[in-house]
Simulated scan of single mutants.
Amino acid sequence: MALPSVAAASEHHPFEFETALKDLANSSNVKSVPSKFNFINQPTALTSDSIPIIDFSALTADDPHPRSKAIHDLSKACQEWGFFILVNHGIPEELMKATFTAITEFLSLPAAEKKQYEAKSASDPIKCGNFNVANTSNQIITLWRDYLKLYVHPDFHCPEKPHLLREVVLEYSERTRKLARILLEAVCDALELEQDYVDQVLKLGSSFQMFAANYYPPCPEPDQAIGLPPHTDPGLFTFLIHNGVAGLQIEHNGHWFNADSPQNSILVNAADQLQILSNGRYTSVKHRAVVNSEKERISIVVANGPAGEAVVGPAAPLVQKDGHPLYRSMKYLEYLESQLLKDRVGGKSLLEQQKI
C-alpha cells in the first residue's frame, strides 16, 4: 500500500514541523507560555463514572450469554459515548511498561540522533518533533506536544534506536491489531452483518495501522496552551494508554469530560470510518489533550484503520434497512490525505463534509 502522500506540506499547509519541545520545557527560565504556543482554552472538565467499561474476555468467551451481553454493551458504548474502557484485554502489563520505557529512552536520545527523524513532510513513515496548526483566524499555533509517529502496518517502520523500541512496538502493534479485529467482529454481530463482512470490504489483511507516542511536558500556563485541539480520528478503532497522568478529554452531550482509565486498561474510541460504515449508528466524537503544570504526560496511541485502498462507505445491508446512505464513500488513503490537508482547527471536519 502506498503511504499517505502529501505534496503540499509547504508554507501553505497548516502543519509546520518544529524542533523538540522537551528542551524548552526543561528550561528553568520558562515561567509563561511563549506566544507561539498561545491557545486560550478552559482545561477543566467534568468527571464521569459513566464511561462504558467493556470486558474483552467476555467478547471471546465460549459461553454465549456473557458474549451476547458484551456485544450489546460494546454497541451501546459506540452509539452513546463513542469511547469505552477495555479491560481484561490480554496484553501483558510487562509489554505495556516496556513500551513506555522504550519511548522514554527515545525521547531522551541526543538531539542529533532524533533529528534524522524530524518530519520533512506529513507522509514520512517515521517522524518526530512537534507541529503548528492554523485556527479559523489564520493564526499559527504551536502545540504543547512532542510526538513520534510510525506507520507499522502493512509495512513496519521504526527508528533503529533505542534497540528495545523496535521489539516492543512490533509486538504491541500486532497485539492491538488482533484486538481491533475481534472488536470489529463483535460490531458485525451487533449490526447484524455477516461475520466476515468488514474484513472483506475493508481489506483488513492490509489494514493501515499507525503507532504514535505523545509527550506533553509540564506547562506553566495550562489555560494558554493545548496538547491537541478538539478533533476526531480517522480509522475504525483507536487505542490509547498513558503513563498514569490523565489529560484526554472527550465531548459528550455538549460537555467536556475527563477520560480517566484504570491502570492496564485501554481507552478505545470509535473513529470516523466506523461511523461511516455504520451509517451513523456509531459515533466518532471529538476529543482533545489538555496539559498540566505539574507532571509530564506520555500517551501511546495505536490507530487501526481499513486498508488504504479500501473504499469506505455505509455498509450496503444497513443502507438497505435505512433506505439511503448518510455518508459518501471514499477511498481510505484519500481520506487520510484529505485530513492531513484539512483547513484548520475549528473548521468543518472532514467527517462532517462526508455527510450527504
Rank of each mutant, 00 (worst) to 15 (best):
P262M: 06
L24V: 15
L109R: 02
I54E: 03
L193E: 06
K331I: 10
V30Y: 06
A270C: 13
V245L: 04
E296P: 12
F56S: 08
Q339T: 11
A134Q: 13
D343M: 08
K120Q: 15
D49L: 03
V311S: 11
T47N: 15
N26E: 14
I356N: 14
T101G: 09
R145E: 00
S75A: 15
R181G: 12
W256E: 03
L107R: 01
E334G: 02
G347M: 02
V285H: 08
R328V: 09
A212G: 11
A225N: 00
I71S: 10
V169K: 06
G247L: 02
I182T: 12
H65Y: 07
P217Y: 03
H287W: 07
T142Q: 15
Y215F: 15
L95M: 07
Q320L: 13
K97V: 12
A270L: 01
K178Y: 00
P325M: 03
Q249F: 06
I140E: 12
S48I: 09
F237S: 01
Q224H: 15
A20L: 14
V345G: 02
L148F: 07
D260S: 11
H89G: 12
S108T: 04
G129V: 10
P306S: 11
E11G: 11
P314E: 13
V345R: 09
A310D: 04
N130A: 01
I250Y: 06
F257P: 01
E174C: 08
A45W: 09
